[in-house]
Design a protein around this nucleic acid. Structure first.
Length: 494
RNA sequence: GGCGCGGUACCCAAGUGGUAAGGGAGAGGUCUGCAAAACCUUUAUGCGUCGGUUCGAUUCCGACCCGCGCCUCCA
């Protein structure tokens, strides 16, 4: 069963093949660290994470590299100092925030590479392009890529530049470019701006060069997969191809993976529309990281996802349902009927459907659907005692663990993640939803909860329901879900 | 203007040339001291509109309406 994956380069779904059998080398364009990551950024990073996790689940060994863009015009401007250390200090803050947010969303960490750690290699790369006639130096010391020397230019974004002639449309502001379409490889410093000394002179890299240099350095001149948001198709990825293939004459990335933008409440997210949310904003409004991740993954990556608060609420309920089932199977009622039907075939079939759905260009919606169908049938069977605990428990858990190896929402660790974001918000003086503040203040340790549960048990034994209910009320207020079953009280964190 | 994507029930959403997965929400019920969880029943003769092809279309074709994206630095 081949993995079918859409390739932007061919505009079709193809059988996924790797250069080296069993190994995947992939690269994703990461964040530009000038601010906190927003929910749109994370749609892409979560989508690539699903891809990464599915490849591993399918048995590939995956070398996955993501860049951190810690130098660009906005960063240089915001850092407000010609001192490189000051720039680094500024970007450290946001790259660390990005790592924390990624962790909150259970994004499996790739190998991170930072642009400013590779400045000299970039200068070398540009010098080689110049030697091949693909780049030229402008009067001010900036370098540009000469698009006219790379005929395939436009093959990824399906743009036709054939009619373009050197010097045909020169922008008055960019008089030093030979052609308006030529893009910057290297920017000469302006007074007061941070810059690096290199063999091609002082300055800072253009946007695209870092990805060509770092991806080829880590993964080789040709590698399997290159990922990013759809907006990167042009010009960023087109330019990466031009630089890389122009220099090596070999195919750069074989598969190009792009995730579609999300909408927020039906509109493109933007600060002016007031629908711009960072991950932290959402957590501080009281939404759980697991629910956010689930919503982000529940719509296949090539479809537009309309991110709404109603949707977040629904995702919260869906995750709850899955966790309830996982808890039930992990700690099931012991009594089963002697003539019970086994659930093992259902588990096997579900796992199969799950893998096939993901294998079909990562159809996450269908994969989730398969899981929920199993959950419904198995819930009914288990509650009726109509299953074989000894032989069925393991396969059912196995399916759920397989699901979680990709979706990563079952593990009950939201509280800790929320706590650290709340702690950050207090220091930064950010607004925190009152209910969230109350819930974090009321938090109980496992031992506290166990003690209260024991008190509940005792009260119930003497049929003192009033006390029992009072304790349950306290626990509920602290975010503890209490279930009274025939075989004792079961609890977990909501 | 160029290129591209989509319009499926109250909401989210998959899917197929033969008659609509799944989740959420709502209503009723079972269970329970009460809850919670779970289960059962229920909610699209219908898949933007109008034509066409076909024995048959939501699925193919055409037109139209609506929404959205990219077109030099926004994931």
């Amino acid at each position: 069963m081949p993995f079918r994956l859409y390739n932007t380069l061919s505009n079709t779904v193809e059988d996924f093949r790797t250069i080296d059998s069993g190994k995947v080398r992939m690269y994703a364009c990461g964040p530009t660290v000038y601010d906190y990551g927003h929910i749109g950024n994370f749609r892409t990073f979560v989508a690539v994470d699903i891809l990464f996790r599915f490849l591993k689940l399918s048995g590939y060994s995956v070398h996955y590299v993501m860049n951190i863009t810690d130098v660009d015009d906005k960063i240089i401007h915001n850092a407000g100092s010609p001192d490189i250390a000051a720039v680094r200090h500024y970007t450290d803050k946001f790259s660390n925030a990005f790592f924390e947010d990624s962790k909150a969303l259970n994004i499996d960490p790739p190998q991170f590479v930072r642009a400013t750690d590779h400045i000299q290699e970039m200068a070398e790369f540009i010098a080689e392009l110049e030697a091949k006639g693909l780049a030229y130096r402008a009067e001010d010391g900036s370098y540009y890529f000469r698009i006219a020397k790379f005929p395939p230019y436009g093959k990824l974004s399906k743009r036709d530049f054939a009619g373009m002639e050197d010097g045909a449309r020169v922008d008055v502001d960019e008089y030093d470019k030979d052609n308006a379409r030529d893009f910057a490889l290297w920017k000469a410093p302006k007074p007061g701006e941070a810059s690096w000394e290199t063999k091609i002179g002082p300055g800072r890299p253009g946007w695209h060069i870092e990805c060509s240099v770092m991806s080829m350095e880590e993964l080789g001149e040709s590698f399997d997969l290159h990922a990013g948001g759809e907006d990167l198709i042009f010009p960023h990825h087109e330019n990466e191809i031009a630089q890389s293939e122009g220099l090596t004459g070999k195919p750069f990335a074989h598969f190009w993976f792009h995730s579609r933008f999300l909408l927020v409440e039906g509109e493109k997210m933007s600060k002016s529309l007031g629908n711009f949310y960072t991950l932290r904003d959402l957590v501080l409004k009281g939404y759980k990281p697991s629910a956010i991740r689930f919503l982000l993954t529940s719509v296949p990556y090539r479809n537009q996802l309309n991110f709404t608060f109603d949707g977040l609420q629904q995702a919260t309920a869906s995750v709850e349902r899955l966790r309830n089932f996982y808890a039930l199977v992990s700690n099931p009622p012991k009594s089963t009927k002697p003539d019970a039907t086994s659930l093992a075939p259902l588990a096997a079939e579900t796992k199969d459907r799950f893998m096939q759905a993901l294998g079909n260009d990562l159809n996450t919606a269908e994969a989730i659907g398969a899981i929920f169908e199993m959950v419904r049938v198995a819930n009914a069977a288990i509650n009726a005692g109509n299953w074989k605990l000894d032989t069925d428990q393991k396969p059912l858990l196995d399916v759920m663990n397989t699901f979680d190896a990709v979706f990563a929402v079952l593990k009950d660790d939201d509280a800790a993640k929320i706590n650290s974001i709340v702690a950050w918000a207090k220091i930064e003086g950010r607004e925190i939803a009152p209910e969230l503040l109350a819930a974090t203040a009321n938090q109980l340790s496992d031992a506290d909860v166990e003690a209260k549960i024991a008190m509940m048990e005792a009260a119930r034994k003497s049929r003192d329901f009033k006390s029992s209910d009072a304790i349950r009320g306290e626990l509920t207020a602290a975010g503890i879900l209490v279930e009274i079953t025939k075989e004792g009280i079961r609890w977990r964190r909501k």
